[in-house]
Design a protein around this nucleic acid. Sequence first.
DNA 1: CAGTAGAATGTAATCGAATACATTGACCTT
DNA 2: AAGGTCAATGTATTCGATTACATTCTACTG
Lengths: 338, 338
Amino acid sequence: MNLKDIARIAGVSTATVSRVINRSGPVSAKTAQKVLEVIEESGYVPDTIAKSLRIGQTKTVGFVVPDISNPFFPEVLNGAEAVCADYGYTIILGNTNEDVACEAKVVRSLRQQRADGLLMILVDESGGTLRQALSGADSDLPIVFIDRHIEGFHYDSVIIDNESGTSQATKHLLGLGHTRIAIIHGPITTTPGAGRLRGYQTAMEAACVPAKPQYVLEGDFRTESGYELAKRLMSLQDPPTAIIGGNNLMTMGIFRCLRDMGVAIPDQVSLIGFDDFSLAGYLSPPLTVVDRPMSDMGRLAADILLSRIEKRETGPVRRVVLPTALKVRGSCRGLNGR
Amino acid sequence: MNLKDIARIAGVSTATVSRVINRSGPVSAKTAQKVLEVIEESGYVPDTIAKSLRIGQTKTVGFVVPDISNPFFPEVLNGAEAVCADYGYTIILGNTNEDVACEAKVVRSLRQQRADGLLMILVDESGGTLRQALSGADSDLPIVFIDRHIEGFHYDSVIIDNESGTSQATKHLLGLGHTRIAIIHGPITTTPGAGRLRGYQTAMEAACVPAKPQYVLEGDFRTESGYELAKRLMSLQDPPTAIIGGNNLMTMGIFRCLRDMGVAIPDQVSLIGFDDFSLAGYLSPPLTVVDRPMSDMGRLAADILLSRIEKRETGPVRRVVLPTALKVRGSCRGLNGR
DNA sequence: CAGTAGAATGTAATCGAATACATTGACCTT
DNA sequence: AAGGTCAATGTATTCGATTACATTCTACTG
């Protein structure tokens, strides 16, 4: 059952049917009604594929994530999906498994599928992968980066103030009297990895507390690395009195490690995580975290992307930086009383 | 840059280029090489849209979920995505917001987009919505239901043994000496809602412990309803000594409520949740839960769907029922010693 | 009543790839 | 050398919609 069939049954031309469906031209009331009746009866749905081919637009947005099972992902997706649905766009998923080669493959596949635009949480922030995957193409494919971005690349991005996030956390700990503060940060090749480390360093320097190198460890944003590195920290001859986790997963890893090692939080070690999650406030102790507006990030990114796709906005590249907020709960203890 | 351009530059016909790309016919080594070179240089990627239109297959699978932010979703998605990626299929997302009307819209939209098949976590288990959304169509669109299914509908489904899950949980509590056991179950119009309730009832009856009606409450699978109903339970003149949560979100709600009300777990009330989640074992007390293989559900459902799409399997409808397992941690206390 | 504006409708090309069918050419057979 | 086989390639149609352009029809003007 296609447009031609409808035209035949209704006794009109395909052009007329198309005009009725899209309200794209004058059609007499009588004809329109007749056509609509036929469509209704037959249960006809226009073929989006054919339409896309003809008009060169698919009304789809590719959403590229490194790791579906990171709880950060559904939150962002949630915001983005709502906006896309509002504008009649559908989301196609691309999972890169934190892998550079996979990222290239996914982008190329999304390009093949003619996604109208891309929402990307990057893996390769050097941009090499992306540049290659986009090579030879109509390189005006709109892309909005989320959480991470590429220096000197002409794309919009929605990120957060990572530096201020860890800076707040560090100051909070310093204010409680801690000096042996450790951080398990993400890869410094990534925006959030480097930014969060910088915030920590800045705050430490500002307080004239030198950060010991053995307290600054680089993880890979995964639970296991948080676990392992926390174990290493607590095995030092002078273990830290406070640890900052570089993201949600690593914080969970740290939390588990401390629990498994029998290290009391916050009595022996204070802990601050980056990223809030649903049960963080119900752990014991309730976790103090740096929170950020994840759903808003998705919403905003989708907003920008769609306005680029629909050419409602043509100005220069936008770089939106959203604020973070320290949520003080119960995983930090003051040392001043000692 | 399209197939025609490549053909022109390589000095061959479009048919030959197509044959090279798809290995769909004999091409001399020399010609093939030439064509591949041109493709390489130009960064050409075939247009999936055009291909789909021609061959009537999109290599996409629609994934319909009621609630993106339910932690159950990414787990299932994770499994499904891996299988789909293996077979070269892409996932299109459909969010129904637990809304029947929205479900119809999403299915219709996915049909328009010519998804080759659907993975569905239903909202309307009566099937009315689905039947309507599929009306008039080539109703041989393969669909696999996950977690919930429609009685007497000719589609495959992958569900879990809900009844045995709550039955195990109830027996565990009975074994510990509890008799005032409450359950906050999901809507009885849903497979998991009804099944889990039944398991509870069966186990209670088998032990000749009558279930008091005020201990059996129907929630809506959301955190808030768990919270509210737990509050109601604990306000009874003879509150239960144990509560079973009907799903992950409601269990979180119950947990929060008990904490907020200052009810000690498990000293005052024992708690068993349905569905494990990443930090359940690190709450205090660590939560005893009925676990189920969520990622496997996604994997299996995708497996079945793809084998239907590719006609590798044409047998009768399959109904796969996966087992649940009680994970005993620390949220239940024995009453026998009293 | 001829002329014409503008509404209503139709015809046919187009998007980019796949493919049925046609054609060419090389090599082998008898 | 004629005929046959099969590999290699080309031509032209097709998928289902949109749309530029052409045509018809209606109604109104002077």
